[in-house]
């Protein structure tokens, strides 16, 4: 009855219709937006999936490369060493069985062959060691660096006793996180270099840490009063098998020591650099990691 009684007001009716029309348009718009959104989500998901697949492929590729490196190490250790051992044995048999039949020059040449074989073996062993350092699992622990340096010095004891060397080591050095065996190797290599490349009569080597710079990791150093390194060689010394001196000068060696040191330090997230004045000495500076972890534990 009511609707009969209420008169139809055309303005109101038009207004109502236009509200409903507007509502309908908005709903349509919302649905369209929803569809668009769904499509974009689907597109993004596909994109992410694609990226995940690429990442998986890259990982697989990395694994394959690592396996190749393993295979290479095995080749270096086994397949190359085997014929080398054969050559060495036959050179030895020649010496044992036929030395008397050869003249002095012949015996000298035979000696040269044996010397070269030993050098080849040293190179192969260094290469093998380098690749093991690179691949070995790190067992990271909080380490007292003073203790690490003492152990390195113990390992060099025979060398230290043979020469008159003053070793300067502070009472305490900061702790770092790292692999014990590998950190000891860093110090044995740097300390033995400091002793090797030194022809002064009063040799000294100093291990220490620089005053803490704001927030950075502790910067350790190994300093010597040895022969020093010319500036143009400051980068080259870290290259594998790079020696700056004649083969047998300064106690010889394959030239893998600093490469191994650098690799260990990099695996610990740190870096190494050298400052040196030829004729006065060298200082190797290095860090292990970013230092943040140790800071929060202190």
């Amino acid at each position: 009855m009511d609707y009969i009684a209420v008169p139809v007001i055309p303005e109101l009716l038009r207004a109502k219709v236009s509200v409903f029309a507007e509502l309908y348009r908005k709903t349509q718009q919302l649905e369209r937006l929803n569809r668009e959104l769904e499509q974009r989500v689907a597109e993004r998901t596909a994109e992410l999936q694609e990226r995940a697949e690429t990442l998986q492929q890259l990982n697989a590729e990395l694994r394959r490369r690592n396996q190749e490196l393993d295979a290479f190490t095995y080749i270096a250790s086994h397949d190359l060493k085997e014929p080398l051992r054969g050559i060495n044995n036959y050179a030895q048999f020649l010496v044992e069985d036929y030395a008397e039949k050869l003249d002095d020059e012949g015996r000298q040449q035979l000696g040269a062959i044996q010397q070269l074989i030993r050098r080849m073996e040293d190179l192969l062993n260094s290469l093998l060691h380098y690749s093991r350092v690179e691949r070995a699992e790190l067992s990271q622990k909080e380490l007292d660096v003073t203790q690490v340096v003492r152990e390195a010095l113990d390992q060099l004891q025979a060398r230290l006793q043979g020469e008159r060397v003053q070793v300067r080591l502070p009472q305490s050095l900061p702790a770092v996180r790292g692999d014990r065996a590998q950190l000891i190797e860093v110090f044995t290599n740097l300390l033995s270099n400091a002793l090797k490349y030194n022809d002064t009569t009063e040799k000294w080597v100093e291990v220490g840490v620089q005053d803490a710079t704001n927030g950075g990791p502790p910067v350790f150093f190994v300093r010597d009063n040895g022969i020093g390194i010319a500036p143009e060689h400051h980068e080259k010394i870290f290259e594998v098998f790079r020696r700056l001196h004649a083969r047998d000068a300064y106690g010889g060696g394959t030239g893998a020591g600093l490469t191994i040191v650098k690799k260990i330090i990099e695996r610990h997230g740190g870096r190494i650099w050298v400052e040196s004045t030829p004729g006065e000495g060298s200082t190797f500076y290095f860090t292990f990691g970013t230092g943040e972890k140790i800071k929060t534990e202190e």
Binding site: E82, P83, R85, G86, N89, Y90, F93
Partner: peptide, 11 residues
């Protein structure tokens, strides 16, 4: 398998 190694071992 290696003749050289076997010879060396025998010797």
């Amino acid at each position: 398998d290696s003749d050289a190694d076997f010879y060396a071992m025998k010797r």
